[in-house]
Design a protein around this nucleic acid. Structure first.
Lengths: 226, 226
DNA sequence: TAATTTTTGTAGCAAAGTCACGGAAGAAAT
DNA sequence: ATTTCTTCCGTGACTTTGCTACAAAAATTA
């Protein structure tokens, strides 16, 4: 890969860097591939660095003491994430998991290198700011969903999102996985999907869900989105 | 007030500023007082600037479409908050409310001034970063509470926090206000407080709650804190 | 004192989470 | 090909929390 060209493409602050800084970034930059399901980052101590998704799909989520999960957001191509470099921002005090949802490739800027750049360059620091703010905004949106929306609408929205990501009407998903995304539990998802099926919205079978009546699913999801 | 001395005291990045920057800050700095219950900041458009609490107590919270509230965190003396200056970080895309919980005094750094400093100074930008990260961390802690803890333990913890803040065992609080803090609803709070009273944890009367059995309240709250 | 507002109580139902178990579908092993 | 095993799903009974609606009690104001 032509790292030089690529990086300038990914990083809005690239043009504000000195030649030395660019060189430092390029020479320390790592490329790494992960297989579907692999953990990229786990908890506070882990600090591989800032990641940039070049292909594939990443899931950022939290896990409670009892093992209940909740997806905070996903990263697609060109997205970046700070949480895998939480050690460079000491006041970021919470545990997140970052995992590969598909086979994927990342660029990794080592934590130490990025920290150095942040300390030197206001442009880098401000970009970091914007990045964290956008993650923060997604989490606040999620907070509103959890507190104020009914689960059926959230499931409907999630199913649509999935079929959009995979471009298929049939999703290879277990009820458990849906529960893990939405911060709910398997039994409740089963219950509601069953109801969806009775209503003719979806067709269920072991390990897969086929969206049948897109319009009505969308109508349901709408009331969660607004 | 000796603004000079004070500001250097409040802002960790003060020593990294140039003389001009210090002057800019000092000359633009505002001092403002708010009465208990006043709204300091409301929603996206409002952008008075970065606030520093010099005395009193601030509540930062969100309000849903249906009017349900949830306290994100509080600010005490010496605390700072970015949300009243969300316009300087365009990717901060959510609506928060900031209100005076007691009579209080603030220092206000106008948004434009702070933005200019952030753009010039990596130290300021990085401090902003740290500030946002610590707010973010508090919200993530809250997310865990909401998703994974039972309401009775959250109420117990909240009552203790209140009695710590006011240094009194009798709290002047309505059930409604507690609900607004915890993102719940009045009836449920009433129900659980009633149960607390039956168990001899608290003594209730209109508009006030007296903590009776601190030990058992703490024991309950413990299971939410860990 | 009467009228009004605020706060609390309560009942009944709905939604979501928890617990416990069983059974079915598919994969792996023999 | 049959058995074993694992993963996934279905279900019922129960708890917790939220929602709706209404009423009573306490404080405030007129």
């Amino acid at each position: 890969m032509q790292k030089n060209k690529t990086l300038g493409d990914y990083l809005p602050f690239w043009k504000n860097l000195t030649a030395e800084q660019k060189h430092l970034l390029l020479s320390s930059l790592q490329e790494r591939d992960y297989g579907r399901g692999n953990i990229i980052h786990s908890g506070q101590d882990d600090c591989i660095g800032l990641i940039i998704v070049t292909s594939g799909q990443v899931r950022v989520y939290i896990v409670s003491d009892e093992g209940k999960e909740l997806t905070l957001f996903r990263l697609l191509e060109r997205d970046m994430c700070l949480f895998s470099a939480s050690c460079i921002i000491p006041s970021l005090q919470f545990e997140v998991m970052v995992a590969a949802e598909t086979d994927l490739s990342l660029l990794i800027i080592p934590a130490g290198v990025f920290k150095a750049l942040m300390d030197e360059s206001a442009a880098v620091a401000n970009y970091t700011n914007a990045l964290m703010a956008s993650h923060f905004s997604e989490v606040m949106w999620l907070m509103d969903q959890i507190l104020n929306k009914k689960l059926d609408t959230r499931i409907a929205a999630f199913l649509l999102e999935e079929s959009l990501l995979t471009s298929k009407p049939t999703l290879k998903l277990t009820h458990e996985k849906i529960a893990n995304h939405l911060g709910s539990i398997r039994e409740v998802i089963t219950r509601i999907l069953r109801y969806f099926q009775e209503e003719g919205l979806v067709k269920l079978s072991r390990g897969s869900i086929t969206l049948v009546d897109f319009n009505r699913i969308e109508a349901l999801a709408e009331s969660s989105r607004k």
